[in-house]
Simulated assay, not measured.
Amino acid sequence: MTTLFFDIGATLADGVREPDGSWLLTPLPRVSQVLDALAVEPKGIISNPGTEQDAAERLTVALHAAFPGRFTDDRLLHFGPKDSRAIFDDAVASTGGPADDCVFVGEAPAERAFARTAGMRLAPHPVFARAAIEDRPVFWTSIDVPEVGGLGVLKSVANGTEAVPSRTSSPHLVLAMATGLGVEALRQAGFTTEVRERVENTAALSP
């Protein structure tokens, strides 16, 4: 079974440091639904809580408060810098299985690059965790948005499929990440799309 490891900040949640030093995490859109859909898969964390005393413990408390019952195996919680493959190697070792049975889900291309060197599969957003489990690629995709319906319709369609709008360069042109399933759903909804290169370790392209 594949083990999923998630970054926290900007991937799972937005974080606010409280005056008493504790963290308050607010789940990002679609994340809770994704985690519920992946209920049977083991889930862990690879995240940097900072260097303050008890930082990892405080972030763990906030994680369980924001996502109760989703991250239940403390052996899969890994906190520290993600500036080399070391923490990713540690995460793989904690599963007792091969690196190819592990997925790192994180928004930062540089961190995904380190995870890849450790042999892990990658997902640039929680929405694509299932695709990573099934070894399906995610592509940068340009979307032409018609005047009728516009961005509101695009958001509604994207929220129901494997597509995540990344940048809007105009009301009529959006750059998104999407799997093949996501692209097909967008086209069936009437959007013209241009599939470009795979996301993998890349930052956003120009629309």
Rank of each mutant, 00 (worst) to 15 (best):
D7H: 04
A56I: 11
G69R: 02
P19D: 02
D7M: 04
T72D: 14
F5Y: 10
E111V: 10
P126V: 08
L186T: 03
D54A: 14
S47N: 11
C102H: 12
V195Y: 08
I143L: 11
S169V: 10
V195I: 13
R136Q: 15
F191N: 06
D20P: 02
R112D: 07
R30E: 08
T95F: 09
V145C: 12
R136K: 12
G106V: 08
S166Y: 07
E197Q: 11
T117P: 00
G180Q: 01
H172Q: 11
A189I: 09
F191I: 06
P171L: 13
L151T: 12
F5E: 04
P146W: 15
V61W: 05
E111I: 09
P146L: 13
I46V: 12
K82Q: 08
A118P: 00
A56T: 06
N48C: 13
E57I: 14
L24H: 10
A108F: 14
V183L: 01
A99Q: 05
E52L: 15
R75D: 13
P126L: 05
K155L: 15
V148P: 02
D89Y: 07
F139G: 06
A129I: 10
F5S: 03
P207T: 12
A39S: 08
E194C: 03
P126I: 07
N48E: 12
T3F: 08
A132G: 05
D90H: 15
F114P: 03
S170M: 07
V16D: 02
D101W: 14
P109H: 04
E41L: 09
A62L: 09
R85Q: 14
W23Q: 04
G44S: 08
V199C: 11
P68C: 09
V183H: 00
S47C: 09
V138W: 05
P165K: 07
V174T: 09
E41D: 07
E107M: 14
G119M: 07
E52R: 15
L35P: 07
N48S: 15
R112G: 08
A99V: 05
F88C: 10
R121F: 02
T202Y: 07
H64C: 13
P27G: 01
A62Q: 13
F114I: 00
F104T: 06
T202P: 09
L77R: 04
D90G: 11
S84M: 12
N48P: 14
F67P: 11
S32A: 05
I8M: 00
R198C: 15
G106Q: 05
R167G: 08
M177S: 09
W23H: 03
A55K: 08
C102F: 05
E111R: 06
V16N: 01
S206L: 14
R167M: 06
A13H: 02
L59R: 10
R30N: 13
S32R: 06
S94V: 12
L173C: 14
T3Y: 05
